Amino acid sequence: MSDLLQRYGVFLNVENPEGDARDALGQTVRTAIAAEELGFHAAWVAEHHYSPFAIGSALTVLLSHVAACTSTIRLGTGASLLALNDPLRVAEDIASLDLLSGGRIEFGVARGGPFPEQYRHAGIASANVARERMHEALALIQRLWNEPQTRFDGRFFHYEGVAVYPRPLQRPVPVWLASLASDSQRLAEQHGYGLMATPSADFSEVAEQVAAGRARRGDFPFAIARFFHCDEDSRRAIEHGVAAVRAYPRLMGVQFASGKLPPMFAPGAPEAVILANSIIGTPEQCVARAKALRDRLGPYQLLLKPATHDPVEARASLALFARAAGLAAT
């Protein structure tokens, strides 16, 4: 098993390149089951909407199925898009999921990422408004889980004497903010939340922010998702992994604000930039890279996001890493 300074998880985006939604969902579940069998600490699943490619729109439905098929692996919402959803329903769904899973839920939340269409259909004017709405929804959910009745008078949500049931098994449910924005960092510091960096976040910037956060907070929960591909042949791993990363923005339909484009997604990004921000190579190279991240970041959780649309290949890649890292039973 991994030491307590470094935990390994998988980051699963329900991708449907072949137009077979049933198979895409089923393969995601199978990969989460395989992750538990391989000894990974957690399986995180992304939420996306209005995309024929990324079809993980019913996050808690999918995770409930994963929960029924597993017994020990932690299950993360990576992340629940609070700005787009009814916080009362999210509170009920996550509490039910925590109970059904035996208290295995990690509650990651986010505003919605670089996907303007999600905001438009939700009637949200901008990404900044979405972030404010996310923070307010999270504050409401925390109170709903802990108060007999809640009176809430915010900018976006107004309730008088509301109570939701059931309540979660964990007290408290671990909360993660999938954002390194300054207001999210302040909120995390105030409430003891964990922080999470996305697969495309520039590592140099992340490392600086984490170092500053640790100077203020000491050791705090931190997770970073990284594009990942592992192969016994180094050059084959690099060619496949780099090509997958370069194709990802187009397939996902991301639209970053001016000046916010991650270096690894820049047109013609050098291979070296992509590799510096990914976990790609032979099993030994991947494990060495993971340990190098730990040396820079301190205690953290690494979430491996397979850089392949072939689920069998993704599971084989995870198995190679698990064996090299000493996670797998065999």
Rank of each mutant, 00 (worst) to 15 (best):
residue 47 E to V: 05
residue 97 L to V: 08
residue 245 V to L: 08
residue 232 E to G: 15
residue 151 R to Y: 05
residue 306 P to H: 10
residue 299 P to K: 13
residue 134 M to A: 04
residue 219 D to F: 07
residue 286 C to I: 10
residue 261 L to V: 15
residue 216 R to T: 13
residue 299 P to S: 11
residue 298 G to A: 09
residue 215 A to M: 06
residue 11 F to K: 04
residue 35 A to T: 07
residue 40 F to G: 04
residue 312 V to F: 09
residue 269 A to N: 12
residue 82 L to W: 04
residue 213 G to I: 01
residue 5 L to E: 14
residue 297 L to W: 03
residue 323 R to E: 11
residue 50 Y to L: 14
residue 47 E to N: 01
residue 294 R to H: 15
residue 308 T to S: 08
residue 283 P to K: 10
residue 195 L to S: 03
residue 67 A to R: 02
residue 168 P to E: 01
residue 172 P to V: 02
residue 262 P to I: 08
residue 57 S to T: 07
residue 214 R to D: 07
residue 185 Q to E: 13
residue 119 Y to C: 04
residue 45 V to C: 10
residue 25 L to Y: 07
residue 82 L to D: 03
residue 120 R to S: 14
residue 54 A to S: 04
residue 313 E to H: 10
residue 48 H to P: 00
residue 228 F to K: 10
residue 113 G to R: 06
residue 326 G to C: 09
residue 56 G to Y: 05
residue 218 G to A: 13
residue 219 D to E: 15
residue 306 P to S: 12
residue 295 D to S: 12
residue 180 L to I: 00
residue 40 F to C: 05
residue 2 S to H: 12
residue 308 T to R: 07
residue 123 G to L: 05
residue 61 V to F: 13
residue 167 R to L: 08
residue 185 Q to N: 03
residue 51 S to Q: 02
residue 60 T to R: 07
residue 41 H to M: 04
residue 84 L to E: 03
residue 217 R to D: 08
residue 65 H to F: 05
residue 323 R to Y: 05
residue 229 H to W: 15
residue 276 A to V: 00
residue 164 V to A: 01
residue 34 A to Y: 00
residue 284 E to K: 14
residue 81 L to M: 09
residue 101 S to D: 10
residue 29 V to H: 03
residue 62 L to Q: 10
residue 18 E to G: 08
residue 60 T to L: 09
residue 151 R to Q: 12
residue 228 F to L: 11
residue 326 G to K: 04
residue 6 Q to C: 14
residue 11 F to S: 09
residue 159 Y to R: 02
residue 13 N to V: 14
residue 294 R to E: 14
residue 273 V to A: 09
residue 193 Y to N: 02
residue 116 P to I: 09
residue 228 F to A: 13
residue 286 C to N: 13
residue 290 A to L: 15
residue 219 D to Y: 07
residue 275 L to T: 09
residue 77 T to S: 13
residue 277 N to Y: 00
residue 24 A to I: 04
residue 256 F to W: 15
residue 287 V to N: 10
residue 50 Y to G: 05
residue 286 C to D: 11
residue 78 G to N: 15
residue 216 R to Y: 06
residue 28 T to N: 02
residue 116 P to Y: 04
residue 313 E to F: 09
residue 199 P to S: 03
residue 65 H to N: 10
residue 159 Y to D: 04
residue 217 R to I: 07
residue 196 M to T: 15
residue 263 P to D: 01
residue 256 F to E: 10
residue 121 H to Q: 13
residue 124 I to V: 03
residue 79 A to D: 05
residue 225 A to D: 03
residue 214 R to S: 11
residue 25 L to D: 05
residue 274 I to T: 12
residue 97 L to I: 11
residue 116 P to T: 07
residue 267 P to R: 11
residue 290 A to N: 11
residue 15 E to Y: 03
residue 165 Y to D: 07
